[in-house]
Design a protein around this nucleic acid. Structure first.
Lengths: 225, 225
DNA sequence: GCATTCTTTAATGTATACGCAAATAAATGC
DNA sequence: GCATTTATTTGCGTATACATTAAAGAATGC
């Protein structure tokens, strides 16, 4: 583990991984500025790999490099949320459609089925953290089954941008019972090889989730996360 | 012009711009490898800004950095084409829908209308280069009107990845007469504020364009561009 | 000749140095 | 006191140096 860390990964790669983690966890809070030299010292390396890592994270939309002002951790506004969910809706629906077209066997759909089971258990136990984790797995696996690497990359990027917000939104949203039903329907459509149904049902699911999220963000006046 | 170049742009930014241009123009051919030091000498700067630029272009999917093998200009396979067109179809349709919802005035739709006019003229003159340029403008402006910056960025990225292929495909495809009709229908739907029509018609347009492209790529055995 | 080991070469990853320009602080004039 | 100019600081952009290590080439044994 530590070997992997020191031996096979370059400092730049470690910096990408660690900075990303620090941003997602909130250790580097949204809206805060950080000098390259500070980050370098924190991660125990020189400015060079820090700059390279920051460049990559900038193109992933997690931060912004502003000359003399340091690296700024980008906040996510409710407008940003709308943009991101619009994209996730389209691309995940496409993935659902393609997954249904691919004609996967039950074996190949095991992970997807498992994620739904986990969500059910989590709801039973009213464990929101566990539910969110399983939900993430479902969406990630769905996109993987879609078989489009670029869609996978884009969805991962968008997910990263909103992940930080989840900590806030997770506990002010209603218990996601309906969500699980939706997942089951989508799963069935994929399993039965019905692309149009998979696509449309997943699209509906996403649109509703988005509307719900926007409502609660507005209600709680959460404009920047 | 040259002032802009030297004074306001950093070397890294120039490198991004110039390398991108060299890739799109084919001066740096798909599949070829280039040492960082070579590129540095070519652009008259040190390796540092070259590396930074390469990192950015790597995350835009134009090249790949492989230790000791140099920077590799990524070829685009027909599978890649399918991935990219799938994404463009979804995101542009979304943009068309949102543009129609936005209720733009005729003034605001002037650029879009202009691009269609240019395409008509180009077809009249059988000037494929001019047509392609106007077509690009149409799609770009459509996405801009969609009002989602992230969609804009993603579409631009995907367009870059296939632009190189255009030089090849442009002259083996049928004269894009049908394409222009489609554009007009989409434009009208946007102008009249009919989101569903705009979305569906643009989607149809894209799906057909994609099918046509895939057919000719297959016919001509063009698997890597 | 062919495989194998040892050298050598060379490209990268990273640290470091430094000039420049922007931001801040200080000083000067009014 | 306030505005304006002049120092000063400081963070970045970029060049450069260097250690590391993969790959190519040479040499050796069989």
């Amino acid at each position: 583990m530590k070997d992997q860390d020191a031996k096979t990964l370059s400092n730049t790669q470690r910096a990408v991984r660690d900075l990303r983690q620090m941003i997602l966890s909130g250790e580097l809070a949204a809206g805060t500025d950080h000098l390259e030299s500070e980050l370098a010292e924190t991660l125990g390396m020189s400015r060079t790999p820090i700059r390279e890592a920051a460049l990559m994270l900038e193109s992933k939309g997690l931060l912004e490099m502003r000359p003399r002002k340091g690296v700024r951790i980008l906040p996510v506004s409710s407008d940003d949320m709308r943009e991101i969910y619009d994209i996730l809706t389209e691309l995940e629906s496409l993935a659902a459609q393609r997954a249904a077209q691919a004609g996967y066997s039950d074996d190949e759909l095991e992970v997807l089925a498992g994620s739904i089971a986990k969500m059910d258990q989590a709801i039973e136990a009213e464990d929101l953290e566990a539910w969110a984790e399983a939900d993430e797995l479902f969406h990630q696996e769905l996109v993987r089954l879609g078989g489009n690497k670029r869609v996978e990359a884009i969805v991962a990027m968008m997910s990263d941008q909103v992940r930080r917000a989840r900590a806030t939104t997770l506990f002010i949203r209603p218990l996601p019972v309906k969500s699980n039903e939706d997942h089951r329907v989508v799963f069935q459509a994929i399993s039965e090889g019905r692309p149009d149904v998979a696509r449309e049902r997943h699209r509906e699911h996403r649109l509703q989730a988005q509307a719900m999220l926007c409502r609660i963000l507005e209600k709680h006046r959460l404009n920047s996360l």
